[in-house]
Computed example of a mutant assay.
Amino acid sequence: MVFREKSPIGAASLTGVELRSRRGGDWEKPPADVEAPSIRSMFDALDEARAFDAPAPSVARGQMILRETQGPHEAWAHASGRDLAITQLSPGACPGHLLRVNLGDMGFDAGGFDGDLRVRGSLSGKAFSIVSVLERDGALNQWGHKVDAGDILIIPPGGELDGRFQGRTAYAVVTAPWGLVMQRAEAFGWLADPRFRTETAVYSPPPQARAACRRVLRDCATLMRTMGDGVPASAIDILRQDLLDGVLSAVAEAREPAARRQGVLNAARIVRGAEDFVEGGGARQAVQIEDVCRALNISRRTLYRAFHDLLDVSPKAYLRLKNLSAARARLLDASHRPTTVTQVALDHGFWELGRFAGAYRTMFGESPSETLRAHGGLRR
């Protein structure tokens, strides 16, 4: 079954994970001359069935969501099993598109978005998440490390994304149970290393390996989009194997020490610590910079340098942006948890409602009441 939500662009125009920005730029088209044999044969079978008006294959699993998105919260934060805090750092819309498919105990996401975003939190508390950055046209970092197009992020169960996305980003995410990943990893040499099982890291495969991985991910995404009524049961096992082997094969090629970046660098560690302190303090606006510095045992200068190095904003400005984004996430969730603009503003430390409304409109291009009305909440 496919759920299509406000998607004026047809599925055929969203092949692979190619992102066409509203600002007119195009991502590089997936190569058409080389495809994985199993994916190619599935395309041939699908084309043949359509040519002879054969009945659509039955679907046991393979539920699919395909839609355009107007912001990062609807693409990531509300997905099942995820707990992500997303802070928009620059004003403006963050348009994108999203493909999400249920492959039984595995999941697959592919899509893209525009924006300048701080993203922190868990993609899955119980499963491995393997994130491939397919394209980017701005800076991207995770755990303080620079991430390039073609790099792969490994996040064990309970591990966190922790970084910043700038500009346009196209991505794919394979989520799989820990046991399944370990079983498949044993076929790839050094991936049986315990560090692979327990530590978040950025891997940079050599050019040929990263190109092959991107090709597999694009082919699988294209196939799923083409099967507009859902993925048939006969295709799911092939997709599961191709997706997991495709990303693990690329990671296995990143053998050199320079191809593996792990741990949280100092600036990222300071920003994380400041966020944790503020979140633990309850009254967000009441927290003073001096309180944060004392809690982290660092100087004011060190705190400001960390925030500017990682996010290009001061700690105080970031706290305000974080609260605005949290307020927007709450308003977007009003269909499930009815609320009012006043209540949301007060809950997130904004005591002057006029200033809150003005800052919200400047950041997100609409008033808080417009967001609330559009998502089925109550307004006062």
Rank of each mutant, 00 (worst) to 15 (best):
residue 1 M to E: 11
residue 5 E to R: 13
residue 6 K to C: 09
residue 7 S to F: 08
residue 8 P to T: 10
residue 9 I to S: 13
residue 11 A to W: 08
residue 15 T to L: 12
residue 15 T to H: 12
residue 16 G to K: 05
residue 17 V to G: 10
residue 20 R to G: 13
residue 29 K to V: 13
residue 29 K to Y: 09
residue 31 P to W: 05
residue 33 D to R: 12
residue 35 E to C: 11
residue 39 I to H: 00
residue 47 D to E: 13
residue 48 E to P: 00
residue 50 R to W: 09
residue 50 R to P: 03
residue 50 R to G: 05
residue 53 D to S: 14
residue 54 A to D: 12
residue 67 R to K: 15
residue 74 E to K: 07
residue 76 W to T: 06
residue 77 A to E: 15
residue 78 H to W: 12
residue 81 G to Q: 02
residue 84 L to T: 02
residue 87 T to A: 14
residue 87 T to P: 06
residue 92 G to E: 07
residue 95 P to R: 04
residue 97 H to L: 13
residue 98 L to N: 04
residue 98 L to C: 07
residue 103 L to F: 07
residue 110 A to Q: 02
residue 113 F to D: 03
residue 117 L to T: 03
residue 118 R to Q: 10
residue 118 R to E: 14
residue 121 G to C: 08
residue 121 G to A: 08
residue 121 G to W: 08
residue 123 L to A: 04
residue 125 G to Y: 08
residue 125 G to L: 12
residue 127 A to T: 15
residue 134 L to D: 10
residue 137 D to P: 10
residue 138 G to L: 01
residue 145 H to I: 00
residue 145 H to M: 00
residue 146 K to D: 12
residue 147 V to F: 02
residue 149 A to L: 11
residue 152 I to W: 00
residue 153 L to K: 00
residue 154 I to P: 00
residue 155 I to W: 01
residue 156 P to Y: 02
residue 161 L to S: 08
residue 162 D to R: 08
residue 162 D to T: 03
residue 165 F to Q: 07
residue 167 G to M: 04
residue 168 R to V: 09
residue 169 T to S: 11
residue 169 T to A: 11
residue 171 Y to T: 01
residue 172 A to T: 15
residue 172 A to W: 05
residue 175 T to Q: 09
residue 175 T to F: 00
residue 177 P to M: 02
residue 182 M to W: 05
residue 185 A to I: 02
residue 191 L to A: 08
residue 191 L to I: 07
residue 191 L to E: 05
residue 195 R to V: 07
residue 197 R to H: 14
residue 200 T to E: 12
residue 200 T to N: 09
residue 203 Y to S: 04
residue 203 Y to P: 00
residue 203 Y to W: 08
residue 205 P to Q: 01
residue 207 P to C: 07
residue 209 A to F: 04
residue 211 A to T: 09
residue 214 R to M: 10
residue 216 V to W: 01
residue 217 L to A: 03
residue 218 R to V: 08
residue 219 D to E: 14
residue 220 C to K: 05
residue 223 L to I: 02
residue 224 M to P: 04
residue 226 T to A: 07
residue 226 T to C: 03
residue 227 M to D: 05
residue 232 P to D: 04
residue 235 A to P: 05
residue 239 L to A: 06
residue 242 D to T: 13
residue 245 D to R: 03
residue 247 V to A: 03
residue 247 V to G: 01
residue 248 L to I: 05
residue 252 A to G: 03
residue 255 R to V: 04
residue 258 A to C: 03
residue 259 A to R: 00
residue 269 R to S: 14
residue 270 I to S: 00
residue 276 D to K: 11
residue 277 F to L: 11
residue 279 E to Y: 09
residue 281 G to E: 06
residue 283 A to R: 14
residue 289 I to R: 12
residue 290 E to K: 13
residue 292 V to Y: 02
residue 297 N to D: 13
residue 303 L to N: 02
residue 312 D to I: 01
residue 313 V to G: 03
residue 314 S to E: 07
residue 315 P to C: 12
residue 316 K to A: 13
residue 316 K to I: 12
residue 319 L to H: 06
residue 323 N to C: 13
residue 327 A to F: 04
residue 328 R to C: 06
residue 335 S to F: 11
residue 339 T to D: 05
residue 342 T to D: 15
residue 345 A to P: 02
residue 347 D to M: 10
residue 355 R to E: 14
residue 358 G to N: 14
residue 362 T to R: 14
residue 365 G to M: 05
residue 369 S to T: 15
residue 369 S to A: 15
residue 376 G to R: 03
